[in-house]
Amino acid sequence: MLQITTQRTTTPKAKPDESSLGFGVHYTDHMLIIDHDEEQGWHDARIVPYQPLELDPAAMVFHYAMESFEGLKAYRTPDGSIQLFRPDKNAQRMINTNHRMCLPSLPVEDFVQAVKAIVSFDQDWVPHAEGTSLYIRPFVIATEPHLGVRTSRTHKFIIVCSPVGAYYSTGINPVKIFVEDEYTRACPGGTGFTKCGGNYAASLISQVKAHELGYEQTLWLDGVEHKYVEEVGSMNCFFKIDGTVYTAPTVGTVLPGVTRMSCIELLKHWGIPVSEERLPIADVMKASHDGKLEEVFGTGTAAVISPVGELRYEGDVAHINNGEIGEVTHKLYNTLTGIQWGKLPDELGWTVKVD
């Protein structure tokens, strides 16, 4: 168990208006930091006032992108208590990411303890308004000042928290997705399955292109053949075709999302067929033209469930469910958010109370 010291701020911030939180705009009064080096391992766990980091300009995180991050939320339930949603899955995913990125990892129980500690310490920042939550961003950075390309000998694990509203300002209205056929996000053997900043930096050029064409997000195809659907920039993606729900397999190029995992488990629990076989974009577009593409939606911690109303691929446009939210999409959204905010019973044991 971590021994965490605490230092409370002497200058607390004014709380933001819960009706206009946005996403990733406001930050709580405190942050959690744990240091790491080869001799001591993880040590000096502490909660301190939120503040800028002091790092050497030669810190390896700046030059070689030696970092990883996670994203999860704390939810205010109707009785005023606070809970997390499957934090152990985020902890395990960070271990998998850090192994690939040659970074040290906290054990699952220490990760969860650290998350609970900072949320509890800043519990007044967990908003109460409908649809709001506290977004939690744990991350690991390599801090050793060294310009040679090798693994770092020193690191920091840090958690910052941000009260957030709905991820999309337009709410749960269907979004328009542009299918990327020029750039590549991930290839087998690479870092596509990890949650590292480089993956997101490399994806921005396509997002800019999509926005210029009037689309909100990019759907990436596989990096070898540019043939199979993989994931959207910030979400996993699902396609309901002729009664079966398809989503890309997480075999090295797709992020194994916690919301994705939860949706698959719920769909199977409801008896809806789920396929994790590779799905060609040509089959998606053909299903649309044949009237069999019934629903498309994205999943992720930030957005939860995001219905898709339109796909554009090489000038061909698929309109999905008349631009309306599909029945399965809506049921998944209501069930997940109901469990997360404590409005539905947690029959699958996914939530963890914050003391």
Results as ranks from 00 to 15, higher is better:
8 R>L: 12
9 T>V: 10
9 T>W: 10
10 T>M: 14
10 T>H: 14
12 P>C: 05
12 P>E: 11
12 P>M: 13
12 P>R: 10
13 K>L: 14
13 K>I: 04
14 A>K: 15
14 A>N: 13
16 P>A: 12
16 P>G: 13
17 D>P: 02
18 E>H: 06
19 S>V: 01
19 S>F: 01
21 L>C: 15
22 G>T: 13
23 F>E: 13
24 G>D: 06
24 G>W: 09
24 G>K: 05
25 V>A: 05
25 V>K: 13
25 V>G: 00
25 V>L: 08
26 H>Q: 08
26 H>F: 15
26 H>N: 15
27 Y>V: 09
27 Y>R: 04
27 Y>G: 04
28 T>P: 10
28 T>G: 11
29 D>V: 12
30 H>R: 06
30 H>L: 10
31 M>H: 01
32 L>P: 09
33 I>G: 00
33 I>A: 03
34 I>L: 11
35 D>F: 04
36 H>K: 08
37 D>Y: 05
37 D>H: 07
38 E>D: 10
39 E>V: 15
39 E>T: 15
41 G>Q: 12
41 G>L: 11
41 G>S: 10
42 W>N: 08
43 H>R: 07
43 H>I: 09
43 H>C: 09
45 A>N: 14
47 I>G: 03
50 Y>M: 14
50 Y>E: 02
51 Q>D: 10
51 Q>W: 01
51 Q>S: 14
51 Q>Y: 01
52 P>N: 03
52 P>D: 05
53 L>A: 06
53 L>Q: 08
54 E>W: 05
55 L>H: 04
55 L>Q: 03
56 D>Q: 06
57 P>E: 04
58 A>E: 07
60 M>A: 14
60 M>L: 11
61 V>W: 03
62 F>Q: 07
62 F>E: 07
63 H>S: 05
63 H>M: 06
63 H>C: 08
64 Y>D: 03
